[in-house]
Design a protein around this nucleic acid. Structure first.
Lengths: 226, 226
DNA sequence: GTACCCACTTGAACACGTTCAAGTTCAGTC
DNA sequence: GACTGAACTTGAACGTGTTCAAGTGGGTAC
């Protein structure tokens, strides 16, 4: 669990109540989506008052972040085993991205409302905000694992930033997935299936003399903007 | 103005009231941002009831879309003159993107709340939704103008989809801009300044034998996902 | 002139997220 | 065992976007 709020002195009872609120909220989010899950509903289902939830969580969005964290943990768990043994880059990337799709699939309907708050720069739930740094770092760690265990030869300078770049791609794919209204999100599956070998080829080609210069420039720009 | 709602029979009086509501809403959005502009505030400033605004616009978001349309018109007007004479691709792309930055600059603070609703797939305000097709088409038209007036040699097959791709890039830049907290959004200016020659080089290189195949594949994937 | 119709307008009412002043519980201190 | 203070809990209240049953007004048919 991520500590989204700085507590004065975590005690047993408070921790229990907090957990109860998170669990209830996440359950209701799963069962009935974002809009239909009200703070009053969460409070009632958890058997406490609405103000109590606000004692532990500054906003409904923060509860959504907890939900996001659980999805992320599921994703990490889903591909951990398959990523232990070294393999070609394309294989490992495919494993990671495909398992993300499978992990997120049940929540496609709900994800729209989630991305709404996730992309708000003011919100602490934004994946780029300092507040969600731990969560971001954890999902970026998956991409790092993908790169680190790759048997493919990769330009060292690109390799350094590749995990971050792949993480960005993953955010982009997620954005596409959210807007994907094809049945079972088949189009996103297609995107992943064909983007993986494409990225693989681009990574491989980045070492070619023709592309070397433009790759460096793009990397330098990326670093300047980070 | 975009017709976001299908009226039964547009009469003079109704049209006037509708215009009054839009103008008041856009003015208040400009003056005090999204959150501080309430539906009650708009109604009061326009001298009518809150329910009346809902007779013409299904939601507050639809009023934001009107605001978006005005910004877009400003952008089109801002770069129209500079795009009449043919010029190298990089020059024209720079003109279009840089003028977008200047047009949007005053609304950076407000843009966060806007992107929030803009990226909600359920919302009719999403730039990808059918509801905002006219607005999307108009901003895409700017990118088409950029490509059409380019004196640079471009692979015909890429040229066909280049406007759409540049429009997507523009959306991406806008997304970065919204999250850009550097003073005066200097980082986004840097992004534009350096992304333009980079895109120019990539477009030029796409005709090289080494890149030809990967370019085709990427284009095919893009078309399959559209 | 009267009756009707329908575009247009109203404002109270609803459910929501959020706040807050006021209460309760309880471990530690004397 | 009483006292204290902080952690915890409450529910009414606020302002918001949105809805809706009830009106108003002016043009048209008879």
């Amino acid at each position: 669990m991520v500590e989204t709020v700085t507590e004065p002195a975590p005690s047993e009872k408070g921790e229990q109540t907090k957990r109860l609120i998170v669990d209830t909220a996440v359950r209701l989010f799963r069962e009935q989506g974002y809009d239909k899950t009200t703070m009053r509903g969460i409070a009632q289902a958890a058997g406490l008052s609405v103000g109590n939830a606000y004692y532990y969580f500054p906003s409904k969005d923060h509860l959504v972040q907890e939900f996001y964290a659980t999805v992320q943990e599921d994703h990490a768990a889903a591909c951990a085993a398959a990523l232990t043994a070294p393999a070609p880059f394309a294989d490992r990337l495919g494993i990671a991205w495909r398992s993300l799709m499978q992990t997120m699939r049940p929540y496609h309907g709900f994800a729209g409302k989630f991305i709404r708050t996730a992309l708000d720069p003011g919100s602490p739930v934004s994946p780029f905000s300092a507040d969600s740094a731990p969560a971001r770092e954890r999902s970026m760690q998956i991409m790092r694992t993908v790169v680190d265990g790759s048997t493919t030869k990769i330009d060292p300078e690109l390799r350094r930033d590749l995990p971050e770049l792949l993480w960005l791609c993953m955010m982009g794919i997620t954005l596409y997935w959210v807007h994907d209204s094809s049945p079972e999100q088949a189009k996103t599956d297609l995107l992943v299936d064909r983007a993986v070998p494409l990225v693989d080829r681009l990574v491989g080609m980045s070492r070619l003399p023709v592309l070397r210069s433009v790759t460096r420039d793009a990397l330098a720009l990326y670093r300047a903007l980070r």
